[in-house]
């Protein structure tokens, strides 16, 4: 039985209080309670009196790293809590030279998987009192009932194939590192199924998805790989994508975004998770991951590295003539 996130809550608060009080950070990006015990929300605190509002629990899925961009032009350090997956997002922002590692105090949270609050909320367990790690399952005890939830069914999908349980390079680690093995191999079967669909059927599938898009840009705003200084979709002149809501504009937006983060996506899945219209955006990303794996032989395209597959060009290796 290993520790749950909640076991680290007190230590996190102590750490943040200390860092804020001694002035090593000017603010901390963590979690607070949301509308119920299944939906913790981001919280950014700047004063020690706010720290007791910070929580950590087994539903803390939100990848917080993108908030760091709000502070890059300010003096001083920001603190942030990152899980293994979030550390990849941080790595993306650092590798893209958008965030200066020296201006971030990273509190690492080793992670054996995050419970899918959307799924667990539907079980009617009421307000969560305690979550215990039972190895292959989490025991969730609520004020209306308790249930042992098998990890393979109740964790977020990305947690199942996660190979980054321990955030690399943290300044402070909460607890000790956990065993870093994937619960199951990365699964591209849904992508293969899409690839095998007759093209008309596949087009119909994506048409249905994109026609739901309301152009809220939540996917872009949460994505650590979408870190351009000025997004092409915000530029008024020239306007690359119209404001009108129609399928062609929706597709233009999503395809452009998908290709722009191709080879740079860290597989955090946040775009899909925050989408209010539940568009399966990660299917686009995972198709591109699969291609990168197959075409470039890079087994982990989602791990930021110094040399990105699609971020380099060597003229001597280019089989095509100069255009």
């Amino acid at each position: 039985m290993s520790a749950t996130f909640t076991d680290h809550q007190a230590a996190l608060r102590d750490e943040v209080k200390k860092l804020l009080t001694d002035g090593s950070i000017k603010g901390f990006i963590g979690y607070a309670r949301g509308r119920d015990s299944y939906h913790p929300v981001p919280a950014i605190v700047t004063r020690p009196d706010q720290v007791d509002g910070l929580i950590l629990d087994q539903f803390s899925i939100f990848g917080l790293t993108k908030y760091l961009l709000d502070y890059i032009f300010e003096d001083g350090k920001m603190g942030i809590v990152v899980k293994g997956c979030d550390a990849l997002g941080l790595g993306r922002l650092i590798n893209d030279h958008r965030v200066d590692r020296n201006k971030v105090h990273v509190v690492g949270l080793p992670c054996a998987g995050v419970l899918n609050g959307e799924k667990v909320a539907k079980l009617g367990l009421g307000k969560v009192q305690r979550v215990t790690d039972k190895g292959s399952a989490f025991l969730v005890e609520g004020d209306k009932g308790s249930k042992e939830l098998p990890k393979t069914e109740y964790l977020w999908d990305k947690c199942l194939w996660c190979e980054n349980h321990n955030p690399a390079g943290a300044d402070t680690l909460l607890g000790s590192e956990v065993e870093n093995v994937a619960m199951k191999p990365r699964d591209f079967s849904d992508i293969t199924a899409l690839e095998k669909m007759p093209s008309a059927e596949r087009a119909a599938f994506w048409t249905r998805q994109f026609s739901r898009c309301i152009r809220c840009y939540a996917c872009r705003n949460v994505c650590p790989a979408c870190n351009c200084r000025e997004c092409v979709f915000d530029i008024a002149d020239p306007r690359w994508v119209g404001n009108t809501v129609k399928l062609s504009e929706q597709q233009m937006f999503h395809f452009t975004r998908a290709f722009h983060v191709a080879g740079r996506c860290v597989d955090c899945g946040e775009c899909e998770r925050v989408c209010p219209m539940e568009i399966p955006l990660m299917k686009l990303q995972r198709k591109l991951q699969k291609d990168v794996i197959e075409l470039f032989g890079n087994p982990k395209p989602f791990v930021p590295s110094e040399v990105e597959v699609l971020g380099q060009f060597r003229v001597t290796e280019d089989p095509e003539e100069f255009m």
């Binding site: 908030y67 809220c216 705003n221």
Partner: peptide
């Protein structure tokens, strides 16, 4: 407002 994502949802 610090936690606002600035999306239009």
């Amino acid at each position: 407002s610090k936690k606002c994502l600035g999306c239009g949802t």
